[in-house]
Every structure is written in C-alpha cells, then in structure tokens.
Amino acid sequence: MAYFLQLVFAGLAQGCIYALVALGFTIIYKASGVINFAQGEFLLVGAFLASVGTFEWQLNFFVAVAIALLATILLGIAFERFALRRMIGRPVFSIIMVTIGLDILLRTGVVMTGRSNERSPATPYSIASGINYGGVHFGANQLWTIVVTLLICGALYVFFRYTRYGLAMRATALDQEAALALGITVQGVYALAWGIAAAVATIAGIFLAINVTTFDSTLGGIALFAFPAIILGGLDSIPGAVVGGIIIGLIQLLTQGYESHFPSILGTGFDTITPYLIMLIVLLVRPYGLFGTRKVERV
C-alpha cells in the first residue's frame, strides 16, 4: 500500500508540473487562439535564470526567482508585442511557425551562453528534505509543487472571476469584436496572457529542475507531455488544463510503477506512450476534452 501511495503522491506532483505547463498553453490559446509551441522553452529560460542567479550571481533564491519571473514575463510580452501582433490576420499555420521559431531561439540562446549543460537547479531546500508518514516520503519539492499549483489555480480563479483585467480576458476569449466594442484593449489582453503564461512556465521550470536534480537545455521537452493534458482537459479550459495535467501525471507514474509486473504484455517504457494513448482516445471519443467547449456548427 505504501508503494501505491508513494506513486500516487509522486504522480500528483508530476501532474501538477504538467498542469502548470498546460495552463500556459491554455491561457494563451483562450485569449488569442494561438498554440504557443515555445511554452516549453519558457520553462527552460526560467529555470536557467533562477539557477544562474543563485549560483553565479550569488543571489538569494527568492531574489533569483523574482528576476527569472520578471525576465520571462518581459520576454513573453515583448514577443507578443513585436512578433505576434504583426501576424494578426495571417494564417494560423504562419503563427504556429513563428512560435516554433521562438522555441528554437530561446533554447539556442540558453545553449549559446555556454552554461546550459548539467546545471544545478536553484532550490531553497535540500533534495532529501520532506516528511515521512506511513512508509511514504512526502518530498519537500513535491509538496511545494502541489501547494504552489493549488495557489496559482486559486489566484487565477480569483483573477478571472473578480478582477477587471480577468473579466476583460474572459470577454475577449468569448467574442473579440464585442470586447472591442465595449472598450477593452484586446492587444493589452494578449500581452497579459503571454505574461501570465511565461510566469507560470517559469515556476513549473523551477520545480521540474529541482525534481530532476540536474538539468540542461533539453528541460523544455516536457512540454510534449502537456499536450495530452490539454487535449484531455479541453484546449480552451483552464480547469481542464489542471485536471488533465494531474490525471496524466498520475496515470504515467502508476504505469511506470506497475508495468514491470506485466512485462509480457506491456514490455518496457509503456509509461512513455500512455499519455499519448489517452490523447488519441480522447480525440476519437470526445475531441473537445473533458471541460472544453463543444463547437456547434449550423449547416
């Protein structure tokens, strides 16, 4: 039982990281209809800057994280302002290619610093710290990942529901023309969405980097696992991104933990394809996901 609970706890923590990555995708998609293929590299840039700040600039961990957050937010806003805004009215394919370009640019930028190989992650606690209860180790990083994800979800809920800017974002997501008619600055909404997505990605990157003990320029590859999460939850649903991420994380860890019991059926590495199998099934059975908007077309 302790083994099972250990896997569930680790799966929850892993799922929270997927959820944070998926949140970034969803926020941008909801606001502007763009799927940001550079989301993974915002994780890398955030974790990288926090690490450089902590170990090379000798800054306090929280100061380093604040600088990383500020830098990625500015990067996100600048990209939206100077690249994406010029793409308004262009085919979706072109916009996707621009985000792929940003992805390559960010990763190459980190590599070109010559400091991207095998970095220690910035962390405020030792890798061994945590609580033991009932034969299960609740690691500090995993606990904080779960707590911070819940806090971010709560903050986003309050932001979207009760603040002026949050309402403006929701209105823009529902109907851009109506939002413009009401005096909402749609470009401001886009910039805000990119800023929030970059900040969330930075936090996810920092937790992920601590999780893997050392990291390099491939850290952003985890974004591939967020796709099944957003498809499962629904591409335009913020709660869906969180639920989808957690489900994918749980299933992946449980598969990883039990696949060796069925080697003749599952072979090895089955956990790697499980998220994509789920994605395929969801796309076939419920293409708009668990919480996504079902599109109705009148013919």
Partner: peptide, 21 residues
Amino acid sequence: GQATYELTDTSFTAQVAQMKK
C-alpha cells in the same frame, strides 16, 4: 527487481520505489 527509464523521463520515483519495495 528490474526497472527501465526513458531518456525523456523527469521523475524516477517509480523505479526507485520499486527497488526500495
């Protein structure tokens, strides 16, 4: 116990917990 990992893995809890168990 025998456990595998993939180059893309970011969590090794399952493999290590299997060895511990």
